[in-house]
Design a protein around this nucleic acid. Structure first.
Length: 217
DNA sequence: CGACCGATTGACT
DNA sequence: GTCAATCGGTCGG
């Protein structure tokens, strides 16, 4: 499948619009590389669930202004904001809008497309899923159906905080050929205690890699 | 400086 | 369904 990297202009738009636009785009982790005969390798996943975090949004890390932790959110759009939470997890966000506006889109789930063995290894799967043998917590759908799972599977941690998404290490691309029609679902955001009123979670309906099947009220 | 807690996950009753 | 793990960010004193 031919992939076309999204240009900077994609990210310099209203955040909710960018969030919806990210659905069915492809998150790519590119490894330059020594292995695979110098061709490098890549991990690819189709984005199926996102959440928008805006300014004057009490749920957003940027709500109380710029700090050392969230400074990337206030940079130019088209960069990756990675934050550490619960003492053990990382989550990935796509920074939107121009410099000094602290907004971003959280990538909550992707559908594995390429590099599945690599993702499984990074997620600590002891064995590969083989035809017939479904192994509950270690099957395909648990690979990337959550924001911290995506980071783990894609090898994204604090070292990639602030990386330019128009670069070659991590980027987002659209398929050159249009995929089949898909319906977009919308709901309140997951795990948010302030800003419950906003319905800024968007997901691909009936996709089994969406993190929560039942939508919060 | 100490206390509180989180845009989560996985293990367990 | 419940809950512990685990630690840096943030805020109050």
């Amino acid at each position: 499948m031919a992939l076309k990297k999204l240009p900077r202009s994609f990210y310099l738009r209203p955040t909710v619009q960018v969030a919806k636009g990210l659905l069915c785009k492809y998150l790519v982790r590119q490894y330059k590389g020594e292995h695979r005969k110098g061709r490098g390798s890549r991990i690819v996943g189709k984005i199926v669930e996102v959440e928008a975090y805006c300014e004057r949004d009490p749920a957003s890390h940027s709500y109380r202004g710029m700090t050392q932790r969230n400074r990337v959110m206030f940079g130019n759009g088209g960069h990756l904001y990675v934050y550490f939470t619960y003492g053990m997890h990382f989550c990935s966000n796509v920074v939107t809008r121009e410099r000094d506006i602290g907004e971003a889109v959280l990538i909550r789930a992707v559908e594995p497309v390429k590099g599945i063995r690599d993702m499984m290894r990074k997620r600590g799967y002891s064995r590969l899923k083989r035809g017939g043998g479904t192994d509950d917590k270690r099957d395909l759908k648990n690979l990337t159906n959550g924001p911290a799972k995506v980071c783990q599977a894609f090898g994204i941690d604090r070292k990639l905080n602030g990386v330019d998404l128009t670069g070659d290490e991590v980027f987002i691309a659209g398929a050159s050929k249009q995929t089949g029609k898909q319906e977009t679902g919308r709901s309140h955001r997951v795990g948010v205690t302030n800003g419950q009123d906003k319905r800024w979670r968007f997901y691909v309906k009936r996709n089994k890699f969406v993190s929560k099947l039942k939508t919060p009220t």
